[in-house]
Amino acid sequence: MLDLAEKYLRKDALPTIFCPGCGDGQILNATIKAIDDLKIRKNIASVSGIGCSGWIPVYLDMDVLHSIHGRAVAAAEGLKLSSPDKKILVFTGDGDCVGIGGNHFIHAARRNIDLTVIMVNNFIYGMTGGQKAPTTPLKAITKTSPYGNSERAFDASRLAITAGATYVARWATIYPNKLEAAIKKGIEHEGFSFIEVLSQCPVQTGKYIMNETNPWNMMNWFKENTEIKNNIGEKNSEKIRLGEFINEEEEEFSTQLAEVRRKFNENSN
């Protein structure tokens, strides 16, 4: 087993529940590299939601909060405010984050609370068998859209930018070095960091939407149908934009709140 994995993974929870070739495992791979490089093992905790992505941090040998569907960001906000000196990493899926969790997501971004949200986008509700999600493309075939999806899809990164996130990046599992660098930057960034990762789900997305179940071919599809630019560009562009879209410094929520608390204490003395 990889040396870093020996160091960071919870051996008694292995083997993983990930299907062969699942992007979730590659994202976990990039995460342990990032945590090791930053040397913050003692100062970081993870929160996850429900779905296959919810299992990513469960294999990490550190404090992990596996919360309920859509509430990963909400639980993480609470955890951050109670432990403001810790860095909080949030693993969520496309359905978990912009579906049922949509409201928590937009307000956490608006508040610019110091979290690093990694949204694993497989364009489907994978764990439950392949139902269409808010990120499923128009006309795509899924278990609940056998004649084609009649809804347009969210661009989660664009939503994060509009809601006010101060670090937004999108990568895919075919770019492990870029992904690791983005996770490091997101963790170090003092503010709401949002990293969307296009990730292959060979069993559901592959079978139904892409008609391709080989994980390497799916990863290459992510390479061929994307372009790397440093801005998110126009809606409905031909290729999906990857890259670092926003990286700004603005007042962070938990430090603001601490300041309010300090003023209150001063006043009451």
């Binding site: 087993m1 990889l2 040396d3 870093l4 994995a5 993974l9 083997p15 993983t16 990930f18 062969p20 070739g21 699942c22 992007g23 979730d24 495992g25 590659q26 976990l28 791979n29 990039a30 342990i32 590299k33 599992t173 492990p176 070095n177 994980p215």
Partner: peptide, 11 residues
């Protein structure tokens, strides 16, 4: 191979 193995089992 190390970076892209989803089970991190290559060293």
């Amino acid at each position: 191979c190390e970076k892209l193995c989803p089970e991190m089992c290559i060293n």
